[in-house]
Design a protein around this nucleic acid. Structure first.
Lengths: 329, 329
DNA sequence: CACAAATGTGGAATCGATTCCCTAATTCAG
DNA sequence: CTGAATTAGGGAATCGATTCCACATTTGTG
């Protein structure tokens, strides 16, 4: 392997000078610069990142922790981050937790040992242990998807989105609206969205039956099963189903269709996420569009501010949503 | 930051001994080991990867180059790789080319400078320049998706899959089968699939009209437009459309539906890829299922063999496909 | 013209590990 | 009991950069 010493020797200068040429720092005469450049060109030399990082304590690598890789949400968010990092020479070290919660902490540690410059965590919960780990982190952490006090986070206004969606259903004349949520360890998806739904219902004086409240685990199958339980159990038949995520909505949609109900004639169905599939099914799913790409790029930019030591980086960035009304309603 | 020297001092041994404890090499007495372990435990010390890599020339990081991140294909492939790497302490450094071909070479270089241990490239072409770059790479490269002589590659049998799919259409009584392909720089998707289609057509003595052959760019929109051109132009109206990818198939599906044709009554439509959306549309898209997760894990395992210096690593691994017959046919 | 400032370059310490080579203390076989 | 093995542990070189400091040369200014 060719090193800075080789270059120095070939160019007839010291390695100090070579270093200066590479990093364009300090004083270097035009002649020396040219000679060094030529040799570098010729040999195709590239400096060792390790040696460099060892001294500078910088890696230009950002660790990203995802709950799952194969979902619209994740890939679009990563896409957004990538668009920012790419231009400025940073790269992404990816890890996934497969929705196992304790792995978030594990990976947080792992990435620090890899000495990444910063960590972006797409969080699914706000456990105390997780927050502690984040707060004692040696490198800056930006959280996406969950609000975490004291930690810069990028979030969507889940509460308002769910309320707005519920109101839309009510405006359309639906009264018996079932809700398929997720575990409440997930503050954003589990708690906020449900709260928005409940608030809208309460505001319109609609009493929510226990049988209308179901829980899934983000998967299509769990949506299917939740819908099945809901439709079989409730005494006041639901005339609308609000799924906290499009994937679960898709499952519910499937169940409803398969069991001979008309959408939206008998039952309306809505989700959140604006997944690709939601556009293509017929009737197309009414949903909330979140700009995941934007979430990614905002998180990336926040990270850069943190790295550049800017203070007063706002702790919380709330992104907007868009209601996408389609045929399922 | 706490270093090996601190640990050595606190444990009252030399850093050599600490290193031995960490890496379980050489001779260390039980007593010394215990003392060192205790101190490490206490301090939460973790060795610097940079210093380590600087000496050992190993990073335990595999670079992955994707054409695009937000697609089923990519994310499932990465998922498969991840499942292998995760267990053995390797991590994935991700880059994407956004389908720009010259970026593949650029990133190949970039990753080498990052001194990753190996590179897995999800390739979309087999340009000479790309192959040259791969062959002169300092670190092992595994290619997924394209056959590249002299380079370990993991591929699907695109030719056989397309032929089989075409035959299925012919068995179903279709004769005028249009084909939406992609640029032929992509040997697998552009050339092999088309060849499979053409071969099946020829074998059954069906003459292919020029107007039946269209080209898209992998996007849904391009499928829509290709279908539009095809259906407006051809003199012998097509009674089936074979799209080289599900996404383009989805676009075609859309066009066909919107223009009042019945699927599969008037026109059958099929794709390749078994995307999630393809299952949910009605009529559901008939497609070919590729095991992308498997492709990822096979690529990862091949990489490990390469890294462990096993020779005789087979140059080409061809994965199977599965015909998924659904309602669109 | 003299002296300060600006410019150019190299020597050597440093970052935090690994590892080769040596020495010292035990253990063991004959 | 003695001379090899075996076990234990330290000293110091090394990996490939960056960077502080010192010194030499050139330029500028009153």
């Amino acid at each position: 392997m060719i090193t800075i010493n080789d270059i120095a020797e070939m160019a007839g200068v010291s390695r100090t000078t070579v270093s200066r040429v590479i990093n364009s720092t300090g004083y270097v005469s035009e002649k020396a610069r040219k000679r060094v450049m030529d040799v570098i060109e010729e040999t195709g030399y590239v400096p060792s990142q390790h040696a460099k990082s060892l001294r500078t304590k910088e890696t230009k690598i950002i660790g990203v922790i995802l709950p799952k890789i194969s979902t619209d949400t994740s890939s679009r968010t990563v896409n957004g981050m990538n668009s920012v990092f790419e231009g400025i020479g940073y790269q992404i070290l990816l890890t996934t937790t497969d929705l196992e919660r304790q792995k978030e902490i594990e990976h947080l540690r792992l990435l620090q040992n890899r000495q990444v410059d910063g960590i972006i965590l797409i969080a699914t919960n706000v456990d105390q242990a997780l927050m502690d780990e984040i707060k004692t982190s040696k490198v800056p952490v930006v959280v996406v998807g969950q609000e975490m006090s004291g930690v810069p986070s990028v979030i969507f206004d889940d509460h308002a989105a769910a309320r707005r969606m519920t109101e839309l259903l009510i405006e359309k004349g639906r009264r018996s609206i079932g809700y398929i949520g997720v575990d409440e360890a997930d503050r954003s998806v589990g708690v906020q969205r449900k709260a928005g739904y409940l608030e809208a219902m309460a505001q319109h004086g609609i009493e929510v039956e226990d049988a209308w409240l179901e829980t899934g685990d983000f998967s299509i199958e769990s949506g299917y099963e939740a819908a099945s339980r809901m439709l079989e159990a409730s005494s006041r038949k639901v005339d609308a189903v609000f799924a906290a995520t499009d994937r679960m909505g898709l499952g519910a949609w499937r169940y409803i269709r398969r069991h001979g109900y008309d959408i939206p004639g008998d039952i309306a169905i809505v989700g959140i996420g604006a997944s690709e599939t939601s556009r293509f099914i017929e009737p197309a799913l009414t949903t909330i569009e979140y700009e995941y790409e934007q979430a990614g790029s905002v998180a990336a930019r926040t990270m850069m501010q943190l790295l550049q030591g800017e203070k007063g980086v706002s702790e919380k960035k709330v992104l907007d949503f868009k209601l996408v009304e389609r045929d399922s309603i």
